[in-house]
């Protein structure tokens, strides 16, 4: 799927969730955006769709930056993984998955990275209370 990029490129692009991989491919090929800086998500619980998935790209050739945003719903928080294009997406998408629950289709390894096995829930969602601890070791005090 060829996604045409707007010219001149605005600092932030809003795309549909299904077009994220194609947009990234176009950015890499036409815009020389070779560095995937960041993958994260924002939780807007009052809004449908609930999550914004936010990507930041940087070009080491033209020093340009662009932000790509897409929206996913709570019932199907799935987006294509950028791992085929950028190796840096490997760890960043794992973190986004465990913190928000966004599933990255095609990611080879969505194990928890900052959290641990047995942790239930997605802490950075607004409905996760900040003080809910899930200890692994029995407390003596």
């Amino acid at each position: 799927m060829n996604v045409p990029l707007p010219v001149p490129l605005p600092p932030a692009l809003e795309v549909a969730a299904a077009e994220v991989l194609a947009t990234a491919r176009a950015l890499k090929a036409q815009g020389c955006f070779d560095l995937l800086i960041d993958v994260t998500a924002v939780d807007w619980p009052q809004r449908t769709p609930r999550f914004d998935v936010v990507y930041h790209f940087y070009s080491t050739a033209t020093f340009a930056r662009v932000r790509v945003k897409t929206r996913v719903t709570e019932s199907d928080p799935t987006v294509d993984s950028l791992v085929p294009l950028y190796g840096s997406a490997l760890f960043m998408e794992r973190e986004c998955h465990e913190m928000y629950g966004i599933t990255f289709r095609g990611h080879p390894d969505l194990r928890p990275i900052l959290l641990y096995e047995g942790f239930e829930g997605h802490p950075l969602r607004k409905d996760y209370p900040i003080g809910r601890e899930q200890p692994l070791v029995k407390f003596i005090k």
């Binding site: 800086i37 960041d38 994260t40 924002v42 939780d43 930041h56 190796g87 840096s88 490997l90 760890f91 960043m92 973190e95």
Partner: peptide, 19 residues
């Protein structure tokens, strides 16, 4: 703040450490 996200260089480098 509604959200503060840190793009940390060390975290991204750990992704490439295996290489």
């Amino acid at each position: 703040p509604y959200k503060v996200h840190v793009r940390s260089p060390s975290f991204v480098h750990m992704g490439g450490l295996a290489r």
